[in-house]
Simulated assay, not measured.
Amino acid sequence: MAAQSGKDMLLKLDQTGAGSFLTVAGLRTRSLAFNASSVDTTDQESAGRWRELLAGGGIKRASVSGSGIFKDGASDAVIRGLFFGGTIRNWQLIIPDFGSVTGPFQIVALEFSADHAGEVTFELALESAGEMVFAVI
């Protein structure tokens, strides 16, 4: 696989819950992490006292983070409203030459910062709140 431009990794939000995804504007960085906890089934009869794990056990989760600048008051208001409302919405992350991951997320962190001579920036963190769907694109 050839190198990909970071600007092609997009975070999209279903703003109204109607299934119409809009790109969250102003993001400069984005990341996606998948995690799965393991279930230890080791007992006194485990071969060589090696740890044994339960296949398919444990909890899976996805985390998304991003940072950037707000492009307009409307996008700022939507993100702020979702955070303060504790609202769960469907989000979609497009990863070039990999696919898309879509599912319900909640904004669990929202930070604003500014430099005296620069623009106001924000950082947000999303945690999965249900099943993720992967699609090859």
Rank of each mutant, 00 (worst) to 15 (best):
E127G: 08
S20E: 11
I95T: 08
F70D: 04
A33F: 00
K12W: 00
L27H: 12
K12Q: 13
K60H: 10
I137Y: 06
G130Y: 11
L10H: 10
L11S: 06
L53Q: 05
E127I: 14
G73S: 10
E45P: 00
D97Q: 07
G66R: 00
F84V: 00
I88P: 00
R80C: 07
L13E: 04
L27S: 09
M132Q: 15
T23H: 01
T42C: 11
T102M: 04
T102Y: 09
K60V: 04
S20L: 11
V78F: 08
R30I: 10
A33D: 10
R28D: 06
F70I: 06
V24Y: 02
D115F: 01
N35C: 07
G57C: 07
V133T: 14
A47Y: 08
S38Y: 14
F83C: 04
F105R: 02
D14K: 09
G103L: 07
S67T: 12
R49S: 10
L54W: 03
F98T: 15
A114I: 14
E45D: 13
E45F: 08
F105E: 00
Q44S: 13
G57I: 05
P96G: 09
L93N: 03
R89F: 05
D43T: 05
F83E: 00
T87S: 02
G19S: 07
L126W: 02
G99E: 10
T16P: 06
R30F: 08
Q4I: 12
A62D: 07
A25E: 12
L32A: 05
Q44C: 05
V108T: 13
P96T: 15
L10D: 08
A77N: 06
L53P: 02
D76F: 10
E111Q: 11
K12E: 14
S38W: 15
F134S: 09
A25W: 06
P96A: 10
R61Y: 01
E127M: 12
G6S: 09
E119V: 10
K60F: 02
D97L: 11
G130I: 15
A55Q: 05
L27C: 09
Q4P: 01
A33E: 14
Q106N: 08
F21K: 12
I107M: 14
I95K: 02
